[in-house]
Design a protein around this nucleic acid. Structure first.
Length: 319
DNA sequence: CGGCTTTGACCAGCGC
DNA sequence: GCGCTGGTCAAAGCCG
């Protein structure tokens, strides 16, 4: 049986932090994090996420002001100010809330850098071609276009038995890598649609193999091949999307499919959105799920593994 | 036969 | 400079 629980984490969300929270339960994961530690740390949170460019924070102001409940200060480097800090609210999340972690993004500066790189690359191209043909052909080409060209990223934490979750789009796997500190490999997928360079990474938490972390990068330039569905889901997805524009983008994809509707609703519900659908047998599975982000328990802490790419372990310490 | 997955190799970025 | 790691490429193989 496939049981899923989705946890949303926007890579931009933690950005700078102080969105007027619709519901204090929306970002419960923060209960497990001491963001003041982030401030102390030499690593910015975005850096912890493996991001080197924070410009999207400007691009996604809402995300950049997401409030992280309960904990204090999030310091986020940004282009115009280097960093912003915000005192966050202190409401503990309620049980059953799911976690949202946040993540990162970047892009604008990279594009600028890329331009320069491309110019330089033009000069080298001829030389490279020769050497390249001899040894390996794939070597340089990617360099021209790929110089850290990063799109805004958005990650979902999904409790699922399957690694690759259906989201209405078609994906082609183009790589798999072993992940440090994890026995589970990370898979790389790319949208099969031409001219759409959306990518996603899928990896499983090593501390909780039932949890899959899916990270989307970029935005689709085409409609989902799966027909959109109408229904109450739209309202909630929109609601969430209003908090996480990027999330809404992907959530809307999820909601285009049956069982993913449930997945979303389960998540939204746990996020504090009042959704309740007991008619689905699949929901039975949800109730059995470990309370992934239940503050005050160790449950969440046990998940720190899948977040450790996002947050250093010391941040996961219980208060 | 076309599309997809697997897999080894390569490259770039980063820290030491 | 070197080594590690993440990310990507593309050939080979698989499958419907």
């Amino acid at each position: 049986m496939e049981k899923k629980e989705m946890v949303v984490k926007t890579e931009d969300a933690v950005g700078s932090s102080s969105i007027p929270c619709y519901n204090s339960n929306v970002y419960p994961f923060s209960n497990a994090f001491d963001f003041s530690e982030v401030e102390k740390s030499s690593l910015g949170f975005m850096e912890l996420l493996g991001v080197q460019d924070y410009s999207p924070l400007l691009e996604l102001p809402q995300l950049s002001t997401v409030s992280v409940p309960h904990h204090s200060t999030v310091k986020v480097p940004s282009d115009n100010g280097k960093e912003s800090s915000e005192v966050l609210n202190h409401q503990p999340a309620t049980p059953n809330s799911s976690s949202i972690s946040s993540a990162s993004s970047d892009a604008v500066n990279d594009e600028q850098k890329m331009t320069l790189d491309q110019v330089e690359e033009d000069d080298d191209e001829e030389e490279e071609e020769e050497g390249q043909q001899k040894t390996k052909k794939q070597l340089k080409p990617k360099k021209t276009n790929q110089k850290r060209q990063r799109e805004p990223r958005f990650a979902f934490m999904t409790k699922s038995e399957v690694d690759h979750l259906e989201d209405g789009y078609r994906w082609r796997k183009y790589g798999q890598k072993a992940v440090k500190n994890s026995p589970f490999p990370r898979s790389y997928y790319r949208c099969t649609s031409v001219s759409c360079n959306v990518k996603k990474r899928v990896e499983r938490s090593f501390t909780d193999p039932s949890v899959v972390v899916t990270t989307y990068e970029g935005q689709h330039t085409h409609p989902s091949p799966v027909m959109p569905r109408s229904g109450v889901s739209a309202g909630y997805a929109t609601n969430l999307a209003s908090v996480f524009p990027q999330a809404g983008n992907y959530l809307s994809q999820y909601q285009q499919q049956h069982h993913h509707q449930q997945l979303i609703f389960s998540t939204l519900s746990s996020l504090g959105f009042p959704y309740n659908d007991s008619s689905s047998p699949k929901n039975a599975g949800f109730t059995q799920e470990r309370r992934l982000c239940n503050p005050g328990t160790n449950a969440f802490l046990r998940d720190h593994g899948l977040l450790q790419d996002v947050v250093p372990s010391h941040m996961l310490k219980e208060e």
